[in-house]
Every structure is written in C-alpha cells, then in structure tokens.
Amino acid sequence: MNLIPAKNDIYLDLQRRLFQEARILSAELYDEWLADILSDDIYYRMDMPQRRFREDKSGQRAPAKTPIFNDDLASLKVRIGRYDTGFVWAENPMNASRHIISNVEVFEMDEKSQFKVYSIVELHRSRLNADRKRFTVGREDIWVKSEKGYQLLERLMTLDDSVVLDSNMNFFL
C-alpha cells in the first residue's frame, strides 16, 4: 500500500486528539471516552503474541489468533459497566496511570473522511507499595472525521510481551 502522509493541519488535529484520549484514559473518564472519542462502530482488538521461529511456515496449522481484547461498543460498555459498579476492589484506591503516546504517524485513506494513524502507547501504572507496571503497545488506528470531531473507528494493538506481566489489565490503551 502506498501511504500518503496527511496534511500538517490534519496531523496536528489527530495528534491532539490522541493526547486528549490518553489524558481521558489515564484519568479513567470512560463515559467521556465512550461519548466523545469512540465511534459507534468501534472495533477494538489486541491479540496474544506468539513466539515462533522466523522461518516457521506452519500457516494454516498455526494456532488461531487469540484475543486479549476483541470488543465492539456494546462489550466495551460491559467492561466499563463493571468499573461503574464500584465492586472492582483491585481499583480502589485508584492505581495512578500514565498513557504516554509517541511515534505518531498519520496517513490518508481511500475513504476521504478516514485516516490511518500509527502510534505507540507506553502505559505506566503505579500500584500498591513500590509496585510499578509498564506495558508497551503498538497501535494501528483508523480515525474518522465526524461532526463530533475525529472519532476512533478501529484500533488494532500489538502487545510486546508474550507473557503478560501484571495481575490484571483493568485499563484501556
């Protein structure tokens, strides 16, 4: 695919949008995320990595992709509804988290109102006592321009760890 970089003003608008989203997610303002950032048709996905030899050509016989997240708007609302119950004891007191966004690239798509956005998110969570967890994830997004500004239509995430190193993933990236 021949990627055409988006114009500077679009790039800046989308970068601003990513930063805004990061602030919303770090602060766990999930209602805002649902209402303002996510498109109604959101597809939100992260798969479990597999460590395989470079020359491995198992193809069809390779194990199917296994999702960590495989969500649409309805199932994201269920996840967020769980936090809203006030019964998720692991998140009380709140774990401080910072979503750091980097390596943002924006490209035009055939659909004129849509943009492909690559970025990296590094999540730091400061948990009980001296416990600090860190996740690095590559993201490949599609953002769509709407009346409400740019909205997230699709996010495909690549987790770098083949073994997850936190006792929960009570967050979004």
Binding site: A64, T66, R82, A90, D166, S167
Partner: peptide
C-alpha cells in the same frame, strides 16, 4: 467460546482480573 474465555478469564478477563490482587 474463544471470545468469552478471553473476555472472562483471559489476561484482560473481567473475572480473572478480580483474582490476581487477592492472591498476590
């Protein structure tokens, strides 16, 4: 079933994510 296992008892599973801190 695959989606449900992931959603309930995977690394970001809504049930499994309640157990880790208690057992830790």
């Amino acid at each position: 079933i695959l989606n449900n296992v992931s959603r309930t008892f995977g690394p970001a599973g809504m049930f499994d994510n309640d157990d880790g801190d208690n057992l830790q």
